[in-house]
């Protein structure tokens, strides 16, 4: 088994994954620097695929750079920009480049990105993509039924689910569909509403899913009260309770100095994140956390050590 993430999860270690967003440039140094910040702290690093539909360095290329630096990349693969021919071609290529984890997503719609004029693909959806990877790996068949010739892509198959989007009661059932399609690990939407997340996990438990999949709960440190409010009010599918916004607001109160205020906010953001991680660890079926410190990779070691997941 070459997937470090799979090894950690199967050994029942509480797994830690983080995120590396590729740059809006051709500069590999950006990836190298992020790798440096993350490498001693996490089991694997997700590389986003043109996240929020903004054009960036390819996920596959950035994964290859991480691999060359001895990190275990999770190749995020979306259906937005590739039809089934391109998707399967990238799955084969990923294995050939030594990548052993693929996270299957439908992808953010391009209308919100930097090329709203683009023609969207959406040939497959995320469930189909999961099934396609599984079929290629386990049966040696392409989606069409045509046979692979020779080596198969031996990857650990991941998917996502959002416990915080409507209809809530349907989310665990959709998770079940993804598991039945072949998903082996799940990375969830960022958790701020613990109560809602507990309900989702309980429902997944009722459906008997917790023994069939590894669930990594998504977490993300908040930098400013403005960011908290923005996520609460403007990001579809995010659930940020008012209490968290209030904590961020009160963290900077009374501080005139801009630098000191920003620092206080960041500390509070990390503190909230650490508390959430600690609560998540107590929930049955949570196999790890996925830390999305977007353009703030320096926060990852702090969160990991403060949450007691690893010694500093």
């Amino acid at each position: 088994m070459e997937s470090n993430l799979q090894r950690a999860l199967e050994a029942k270690r509480f797994a830690i994954t983080a995120e590396c967003g590729p740059p809006k440039s051709a500069d590999r140094k950006v990836i190298e620097e992020k790798a440096q910040l993350l490498k001693d702290w996490v089991d694997s690093v997700n590389v986003t695929d043109n996240q929020t539909a903004v054009t960036r360095m390819s996920s596959l290329a950035a994964c290859t750079i991480l691999k060359s630096l001895n990190l275990d990349p999770v190749f995020q693969l979306t259906c937005r920009d590739r039809n089934r021919i391109a998707l399967q071609s990238d799955i084969l290529g990923a294995h050939a480049l030594g990548i052993r984890n693929i996270l299957c997503l439908t992808g953010d719609h391009h209308s919100a990105g930097n090329h709203p004029q683009a023609k969207g693909v959406f040939d497959l959806d995320s469930v189909h993509l999961i099934e396609t990877v599984r079929k290629m790996r386990d049966e040696g068949l392409f989606l069409s039924g045509d046979k692979l010739e020779g080596e198969r892509p031996m990857v650990f198959i991941g998917a996502v689910e959002n416990p915080f989007a409507l209809p809530y009661e349907f989310r665990a059932l959709r998770l079940k569909k993804k598991i039945e399609a072949g998903a082996q690990f799940i990375q969830t939407q960022i958790v701020y509403n613990i109560a809602r997340f507990r309900e989702f996990m309980a429902r997944a438990g009722d459906l008997g899913l917790l023994d069939r999949v590894y669930i990594l709960a998504g977490v993300s440190p908040i930098k400013t009260p403005g960011a908290a409010k923005y996520m609460r009010d403007n990001v579809p599918g995010m659930d940020v309770p008012n209490e968290i916004v209030a904590r961020m607001e009160s963290a900077g109160k009374g501080l005139e100095d801009k630098k000191a205020r920003a620092q206080a906010w960041r500390q509070e953001g990390i503190r909230i994140c650490v508390e959430i991680v600690q609560q998540l660890r107590e929930i049955q079926g949570v196999a790890g956390v996925h830390i999305m410190a977007i353009e703030w990779e320096e926060a990852v070691p702090e969160i990991v050590t403060q949450a007691g997941l690893k010694a500093p």
Binding site: C79, R80, T106, G107, D108, H109, S111, G120, F122, D125, S126, V127, H128, V160, E161, N162, F164, A165, L166, P167, F170, R174, K177, Q189, P236, G237
Partner: peptide, 15 residues
């Protein structure tokens, strides 16, 4: 469906 999903809904449904 904007993404013509066959196994929806996606995670972007608003409240």
């Amino acid at each position: 469906c904007a993404k013509n999903l066959l196994n929806g809904p996606c995670g972007g449904v608003r409240a």
